[in-house]
Design a protein around this nucleic acid. Structure first.
Length: 951
RNA sequence: GCCCGGGUGGCGGAAUUGGUAUACGCGACGGACUUAAAAUCCGUUGAUGGCAACAUCUUGCGGGUUCGAGUCCCGCCUCGGGCACCA
């Protein structure tokens, strides 16, 4: 065969034709059925676009092409996120101005993007570092500022001493700078913030109505971190100040033995006694040196200092000490907590270290799984004990095996009269086992409230169990009563045997085991209140409500919701970003730059390196800094901070359809028609930053009245991560980077796209395996040959038509579900079938070209042309399938005997159960199994399986 | 520690509501064509036993529910990702 498939020639040919005919440019004003297919724009920081980009864009483009064939007008724009730290750091390293390096990098990226064969509309490109774009970044700032959503605040920020800049919390990884891995320190600076916290609730609620991966919704939910609890005030002994605390476990308040406040808390100075002053100040200085993230490390041992002051617990009017400790975060809640060491692990650790009292106020509550309380039965309450009797010689435990019930228990009984638990234990041991020579060892913590239905007595029991450990001193025994002997027999077992015993009928068992074997720790779960005044006996849930009510009545507190989300700090003391359009005038204060003066252009300065004095490099450009006040006309100075890159990307999707219109950021009609984005594809690493910020800006714009939608991305899908061939993350240092261009040079864009999507599930990603790609090249060549042979323009065999219709259905469904790998597999099955067929007509081949076109757009276009078509395959309509033709006439029924497949019979679809049963009984293979048995049950799943149960 | 995902042949991976596990591809082995190779085509390929028909086992491990479990329930092991003193 001399006519070989030449991907280089064909792909180049069609890319040129498509560009010339503007095939992928939609008329944004006119077109009906708009579909906005967006993918996260690349960050051209210096290197080539990597395989991950190729992966993401291939999948997103296949989807977009499918939507186009399904009758939508698909707008698929692309651009460059070109401002920000990485681009600037790259420029510094390369020794060129970022403006120069970014221009070069964009050119490289654009060529790469073109070679992917996506439906990009390159006329609608955005470049975020271009004044024509960042004019709108500044405009977005002005809009948010106008509506009180941007503000300045002196605040401690994460400061990287190496990059000499402020970092967002998200850019600090384990206390180190994301980029250069220098230890991050804390520094107080006047910073710009967006009030994203105002939108915490709306951002949370909005998640319910959008089609995003569940895991991403959960990530955002956790990031926002809503928690409902109670806030209340405490008086301070001998001081007019009051101390507010926030807790989600107000039910544990009677276990509060001290209070902790954060070192930065303004109250610290006011309440610290003279005696403690020196020590407290020293402690404050020390913590200030540590970066917030490092301070928050759980590995660090807790430290703290007593202030000398006492708070008064409003519930019992007791005086409790106030400590300062850095395990309390100032910016969350009230910056102070009530410490309940008995029921909080952190407080427990702290109390142990500083020898503070630990008071229990919650006891565990267990409900027996096997015999839960029955409705209607009488409930009897009692104090009870369980004896864990151990023979120290062999470390075996004594168990009772019940005769009438399949139960294994410890020695159990009620506490009678005024006897104590030890006396009760000894008495029960003698009564139930006869052992008289036993020695008390210890009590396993406090009681546990156990609810169960006592089968042997026919009543519900609510028992306060205490477990006591005894040792057997000798085998000395008394005879036990006959009634007792009838109930159970004794068994000495190892802990291991006991653990494996499925009949252990003791819901408290796990608690005893934990207390016996593990270190003492706080009981942090919910339970029943004890030693809590009028709330004693209530469950945690009940108590939380009652106590909140009481606080409200008293006017010292009430229910309160807090969020972990912090305001978005977006000012950067760096050069390569959009200048914040604010002017400081001595007379008028901070004045926003009027809209008509935008953009505030980034001046071309020689030394763009960060200065490191808490000011950005722009501060040393007098031509930029010195200006006139827009209000009074007097001399004034410009803000020299620039904006975080995430501001640039928080609205770019709104700008794309309006690119070219320099008079407004958004054209109302176009925006209404094209937004919100119908499908957004990109990495999951952007969930808590970019995606959250974009949602915030959208919601703010909606409230301001600029747009008519409040969620930017209706549907979102993530691509998985493509790893190096060694299964590790690709990185320069590991030398395992694969550049998509190299692959495409060898096999072409069509094979690259198809292969990378065939490797596995789109959401999963995985290691790049260069070996398998040969299979895809073979597959495409097979298709090429299919069009090369003589096409008989006549009827197609019915079997081929079946195959074709099945493929139409499956490929379409799978693409819609982002299951590209199985869609390709279905195409392969179809192509294999067509290769074997004796006759194929033009119609079938035409449909094949359309089905193939999302994956291999160039090849599909070429073979489409070969069939004699003059229009583009990409302007066709996705074929419909014939329902009658997707079902096979014959079906194989599996015949199971007792759950095992013993035979398969071929029948016409729709054959009745009785007929199939007859056929099965006649089968030689089945007969063998039916000898000397009776069929007791027949299960028939139509057209699939017949299951016979025999006896 | 907490929250999400995963674990299926030699490898990448398929498997509607529980209903014939291993589709599709890679690799490997055998064969055809060829002087030879490449390309292509045909066949075999989960494991064990058996000449074979066939049987037994098999979806990380251990239990359970069911006529029937990769799929559901309970308890573990393990890998990846996210959060991490948030009271």
């Amino acid at each position: 065969m001399n006519n070989k498939y030449n991907h280089k020639k064909i792909e180049k040919k069609w890319q040129e034709i498509w560009a010339k005919t503007k095939l992928y440019q939609v008329d944004l004003h006119k077109s009906e059925n708009p579909f906005y297919n967006l993918m996260m724009f690349p960050y051209p920081s210096g290197e080539y676009l990597h395989l991950g980009h190729g992966y993401s864009y291939s999948g997103a483009d296949v989807y977009g092409r499918f939507m186009r064939l399904s009758g939508k007008n698909v707008f698929e724009p692309i651009g460059y996120d070109s401002f920000g730290l990485p681009a600037e750091n790259y420029a510094i390293k390369a020794g060129v101005h970022p403006k120069v390096s970014i221009a070069k990098n964009i050119e490289i990226a654009r060529e790469q993007l073109k070679s992917f064969g996506c439906m990009f509309d390159f006329e609608k490109e955005v470049v975020t570092s271009d004044p024509s774009y960042y004019k709108w970044t500044q405009w977005v700032f002005l809009k948010l500022y106008e509506h009180g959503l941007a503000y300045q605040k002196e605040s401690p920020v994460n400061w990287c001493p190496n990059c000499k800049t402020v970092l967002a919390n998200e850019q600090v990884i384990n206390g180190k700078c994301e980029r250069c891995e220098t230890e991050v320190i804390q520094k107080k600076l006047n910073q710009w913030f967006f009030k994203i916290t105002d939108y915490a609730e709306k951002l949370l609620k909005g998640l319910d109505d959008i089609d995003w991966p569940e895991s991403s919704k959960i990530k955002q939910k956790n990031w926002i971190g809503k928690s409902t609890g109670v806030e209340f005030e405490m008086e301070i002994d001998g001081n007019r100040e009051k101390l507010g605390v926030f807790t989600t476990r107000i039910d544990t308040v009677y276990g509060m033995t001290y209070v902790v406040i954060a070192p930065e808390h303004p109250l610290v100075e006011k309440i610290t006694t003279d005696k403690q002053k020196k020590e407290i100040e020293k402690y404050q200085r020390n913590t200030q040196k540590l970066a917030e993230i490092e301070r928050q490390s759980t590995e660090k041992e807790k430290t703290g200092v007593f202030t000398g002051a006492y708070a008064i617990n409003p519930f019992n009017n007791k005086k409790i000490p106030i400590w300062v400790a850095d395990y309390v975060i100032y910016s969350y809640g009230t910056g102070a907590v009530m410490a309940v060491p008995a029921h909080d692990e952190r407080d427990f650790e702290f109390a142990k270290k500083y020898d503070l009292p630990i008071k229990e106020s919650i006891i565990p509550k267990v409900i027996d799984k096997h015999d839960p309380p029955k409705d209607g039965a009488e409930t009897i309450f009692r104090h009870a004990i369980q004896v864990i009797l151990i023979n120290p010689k062999n470390n075996k435990v004594l168990c009772l095996k019940w005769k009438k019930f399949p139960w294994t228990t410890f020695i159990t009984g009620g506490v009678e009269g005024d006897e104590d638990t030890i006396a009760a234990s000894k008495r029960e041991t003698i009564e139930e086992t006869g052992y008289i020579d036993i020695e008390y060892v210890k009590t396993l913590g406090g009681p546990v409230e156990s609810h169960f239905y006592a089968n042997h007595k026919g009543v519900n029991r609510k028992a306060l169990f205490t477990a006591l450990v005894f040792h057997l001193k000798s085998e000395k025994k008394e005879k036990i009563s006959e009634e007792e002997a009838e109930i159970h027999e004794l068994a000495w077992v190892t802990w291991d045997e006991l653990h494996k015993d499925n009949n252990v009928k003791c819901a408290e068992y796990d608690i005893w085991l934990d207390r016996y074997f593990n270190q003492e720790h706080a009981f942090a779960e919910k339970g029943v209140l004890t030693d809590s005044d009028k709330y004693t006996g209530l469950t945690s849930e009940e108590a939380i409500n009652k106590i909140a009510e009481w606080l409200e009545e008293k006017g010292i507190g009430g229910t309160k919701t807090t969020y972990r989300l912090r305001d978005w700090s977006f000012s950067r003391q760096r050069y390569w970003g959009a200048p914040i359009p604010i002017i400081y005038c001595d007379k008028c204060g901070a004045i926003p730059v009027p809209e008509e003066d935008l953009p505030v252009e980034l001046p071309e300065i020689k030394d763009f390196r960060p200065a490191g004095l808490g000011e950005g490099p722009l501060a040393s450009a007098p031509d930029f800094v010195n200006t006139k006040c827009p209000k009074c006309g007097g001399s004034a100075k410009r803000e020299t901070d620039t904006m975080d890159t995430f501001v640039d990307s928080s609205f770019y999707f709104m700008r794309y359809p309006n690119v070219g219109d320099d008079t407004q950021m958004m054209n109302k009609k176009i925006t209404q028609k094209w937004l919100p984005v119908d499908m957004y594809v990109g990495g999951a690493e952007h969930v808590t930053m970019h995606l959250l910020y974009a949602r915030f800006v959208t919601k703010a714009f909606y409230d301001i009245g600029l747009i008519g939608f409040d969620e930017p991305f209706i549907r979102l899908r993530h691509q998985g991560m493509i790893l190096g061939p060694d299964g590790k993350k690709m990185s320069k240092s590991k030398g395992n980077i694969v550049i998509p261009d190299e692959v495409m040079k060898k096999v072409g864009a069509d094979a690259f796209r198809t292969y990378i999507l065939f490797m596995g599930q789109f959401e999963d990603g995985g290691p790049w395996n260069p070996n398998g790609i040969a299979g895809i090249s073979r597959f495409l060549e097979k298709i090429w040959r299919l069009f090369d042979r003589e096409i008989i323009d006549s009827d197609t065999e019915i079997e081929v038509d079946r195959l074709l219709n099945k493929a139409i259905k499956k490929v379409g469904q799978d693409i819609a579900d982002f299951k590209f790998n199985t869609a390709i597999s279905s195409l392969m099955i179809l192509v294999n079938g067509l290769s074997e067929a004796k006759k194929i007509d033009k119609r079938v081949l035409g449909i094949l070209a359309i089905l193939l076109s999302p994956f291999a757009p160039h090849l599909a276009e070429e073979v489409w042309e070969k069939l004699g078509n003059t229009d583009s395959v990409h302007n066709q309509t996705w074929p419909r399938y014939d329902k009658k033709l997707i079902e096979d006439e014959m079906g194989i029924i599996a015949v199971q005997i007792n759950g095992k497949v013993r035979d398969q019979i071929l029948v016409v679809k729709g054959t009745k159960e009785n007929d199939i049963l007859k056929l099965a009984k006649d089968s030689e293979k089945i007969k063998k199994y039916l000898q000397n048995t009776d069929i007791i049950k027949v299960i028939y799943i139509p057209d699939k399986l017949l299951s016979l149960v025999t006896k």
